[in-house]
Design a protein around this nucleic acid. Sequence first.
RNA 1: GGAGGGGUAGCGAAGAGGCUAAACGCGGUUGACUGUAAAUCAAUUCCUUCGGGUUCGGCAGUUCGAAUCUGCCCCCCUCCA
Length: 375
Amino acid sequence: MEKKEFYLEVLHVDKNCGARYGILHTPHGDVEVPCFMPVGTLATVKTLSPEEIKSIGSGIILANTYHLHLRPGEDIVEKAGGVHKFMNYDGPMLTDSGGFQVFSLAEKRKIKEEGVTFKSHLNGDEIFFSPEIVIGIEEKIGADIIMSFDECIPYPATYEYAKDSTLRTLRWAQRGKEAHKTSQALFGIVQGGEFSDLRKMCAEELVKMDFDGYSIGGTSIGEPKDVCFKMIDMAIPYLPFDKPRYLMGVGSLDYILEGIGKGIDMMDCVLPTRIARHGTVMTHNGRVNIKNAKFKEDFTTLDSECDCYTCKNFTKAYLRHLYVAEEALGQRLLSIHNLRFLISIVEGAREAIKEDRFLEYKDEILKKYGDLRGF
RNA sequence: GGAGGGGUAGCGAAGAGGCUAAACGCGGUUGACUGUAAAUCAAUUCCUUCGGGUUCGGCAGUUCGAAUCUGCCCCCCUCCA
């Protein structure tokens, strides 16, 4: 990556709430925000080709540092010419740092000041991740945006635990920033658990370090909805207006809309792709489990209001057949639908923000798809 | 014709007198999934008015008690003629 060409252009803020519309400029193209980012942990949005990823209107996707380090290894990705060339995807990309794996693989790691020692979930190998090492791996992978190494604090956590962890995450952020050599955009991650003073402190300290963007982490890990929403409120006031704000691990329809209303620009979640692979889809008629026997002879489309490839071409009976027969196409078609469904809702949100009617839009969507809440 | 082996829930397959409405797998049904250890996991799967009722090829026995023991019958498989 040559010259720095990463910045957020905020074009409009809804007059009635914090929601904002803008363009995120990256070396691999512009992304309209707010946006939802499909998760492609192993340099693939599971079951989808790069063409399909683009066809669902996705502006940016993520991959994961921990998982790509384990296989194929960042050196191979680098030799391939970077992750974009490796996976033949030329759109904007972001790599998560492995901070989430500090949480999700808690039984297989030890945290120390220097960094985290993991026992590989694949073969038990010892893997050491320090903030500097993580940045080095992310530089080799070569995404447009890279994340600082952090600890995603579990919920619930005591104040003492959250404080110690957050202070360490801040030290790691500083160390990672100092180690960072490329022009890739580097984001800091606001932790602090559910404690407002810690969230505030963390946000303020990160802003002092001057990152290219800021994430709100430690969300969507099993905490009640109102706690998650408060965590967003605790950080947003301290984040700079002109830098992108990324709410990590969110998610479902209601969380996404709530985040957007509070001024979040980017979100990601495995939910739409995971539940699709497990047979569940979000539709304009509510939640549908394609496995259900009632769809055996249902020759109507999945969602008549959806413009995705799946809904334009296939019936529920066929999708159910594919799923039940464990044909890979079934999971792929359902993944296409779920991502397109969610992304089209976010597209609608962007249009609404431009016209200062985001709050009405949000109410309308939540009222219409009320039973999609809590996904 | 002779010699063996076997028939257990939708299917496959354990069980060899009470702890067995019957392990386990598949299939069926339902549900969960939030910076992906996840094409994974969980529940349920004889009938029931939830009191109970009826089951392990069939019938008849032995026993306080039988899928399990005995007799006869029916069916399937393998080998030999």
